[in-house]
Design a protein around this nucleic acid. Structure first.
Length: 378
RNA sequence: GGGGAGGUAGCGAAGCGGCCAAACGCAUCAGACUGUAAAUCUGACGCCCCUCGGGCUUCAAAGGUUCGAAUCCUUUCCUCCCCA
């Protein structure tokens, strides 16, 4: 029902295939983020046309609204949304980090104050598993604690140890056999903590592994060092999911270090905020230089948006606050990410990933003459 | 013709003797965004030097009162409302 196979390698980069109850996902894969069981601004048709193979949703948000019992009664995420492909649900662990001001942490779990109405809700490994099993995604994530960065080493060590204990409890509470449960490695930027965490999580026998706690403010060098360190520790025959990452450059670098799966809000959120990811780097549609530019957002792109609208029109729609601006730009950004991942996979299968990666990084950093978008460096 | 209310930065609109280059909103310009409390947030926004800061010119126009005026007085110009 759930399987993963690596079909090609190029250096340490892997191309493979993840089989789930609701379909196959080619890896390396990008999962559009649909926190509230919806990828913001777009429809299922847009997702299918852009080539999405799997979508992510969130335990915390859906538990609060509309409630996991309702989703369960309507046939789980698949029945509820109509999305026929695979889903992955995050455990709510990230909200322990992002809603830090609204929660109280203990060994038992986390007490949240709802960001919607202030009401109090508990999330424990057991409750997270219950919610995720009600939601019925193809892949569930263990309930973890994502430590902030920077943080004292002691705090990271404690969060990491707790994540390990919570992983054990998550595993014990997880029953559904048609749903894979991934464990999550924490440890911040400390390689020894990462190693301890990874060995403990791997020993629990999860069918896949999340790498959490990165892209929270640490340097690229630190992130790469963590991935380099983890590569030989994580079982090669199981998928590795780098949670919450990232920019196109981040993804290229992570694939080069053996990562198979990604998710990130950047393509969708930035689209709504007027930023497009293109083969020539980032493009801010608000900028006055696009005022009368008749060219498509990305001349090298075949998505619906690039086939049908100009930069000038898109800029107008965005400045005018038209909803279609968010939709059109989300369609493009998702198409760009999905297409990029597809091309990465192709290059791995052809044994040419190293060259592809170098070319792509150069392309992303080079702004086309004059009116081009700026470099993607952060 | 008579009576009334006004003219403030790109627009709208506060201010009504010093703390005013002038609140606030919009528009504009730039930036940020990494397991989504985000169709959000931050900054700039009279001109010049431009780093703190400093210099210069403004609140319809001209003249005046005052140590000091967007704020008070006089005249002019221009809007809007009501009555003939």
């Amino acid at each position: 029902m759930f399987s993963f196979s690596v079909e090609a390698r190029s250096g340490r980069a892997r191309a493979g295939r993840l089989t789930t109850p609701h379909g196959v996902v080619d890896t390396p894969a990008f999962m559009p983020v649909g926190t509230a069981a919806a990828v913001k601004a777009v429809t299922r048709r847009d997702l299918e046309e852009a080539g999405a193979q799997i979508v992510l949703a969130n335990t915390y948000h859906l538990m609060l609204r509309p409630g996991d019992a309702l989703v369960r009664d309507l046939g789980g995420l698949h029945g509820f949304t109509g999305w026929p492909g695979p889903f992955l649900t995050d455990s709510g662990g990230y909200q322990v980090f992002s809603l830090a001001k609204l929660r109280h942490l203990s060994e038992e779990g986390v007490l949240f104050q709802s960001h919607l109405d202030g009401s109090r809700h508990a999330l424990t490994p057991e409750r997270s598993m219950e919610v995720q099993q009600n939601l019925g995604a193809d892949i569930a994530m263990a309930f973890d604690e994502c430590a902030p960065h920077p943080a004292p080493r002691e705090a990271v060590a404690e969060a990491t140890a707790r994540t390990t204990r919570w992983a054990e409890r998550s595993r014990a509470a997880h029953r559904r056999e048609d749903q894979a449960l991934f464990g999550i490695v924490q440890g911040g930027v400390h390689l020894d903590l990462r190693e301890t965490s990874a060995r403990a999580i791997v020993a629990m026998g999860f069918p896949g592994h999340g790498i959490g706690g990165l892209s929270v403010g640490e340097s690229k060098t630190d992130m790469h060092a963590v991935l380099d360190h983890l590569d030989p520790i994580l079982p090669a025959d199981k998928p590795r999911y780098l949670m919450g990452v990232g920019t196109p450059e981040d993804i290229l670098e992570a694939v080069a270090r053996g990562v198979d799966m990604f998710d990130c809000v950047l393509p969708t959120r930035n689209a709504r905020n007027g930023q497009l990811f293109t083969s020539g780097g980032r493009l801010s549609i608000r900028n006055a230089k696009h005022r009368a530019d008749p060219r498509p957002p990305d001349p090298g792109c075949a998505c619906y948006t690039c086939r049908t609208v100009s930069r000038a029109y898109l800029r107008h729609l965005h400045l005018a606050g038209e909803m279609s601006a968010a939709t059109l730009m989300t369609i493009h950004n998702l198409a760009f990410y999905l297409d990029t991942l597809r091309r990465i996979g192709q290059s791995i299968r052809l044994g040419r990933f190293t060259g592809f990666r170098a070319d792509m990084l150069r392309q992303l950093a080079a702004a086309p003459e004059g009116e081009g978008p700026g470099p993607l460096t952060s």
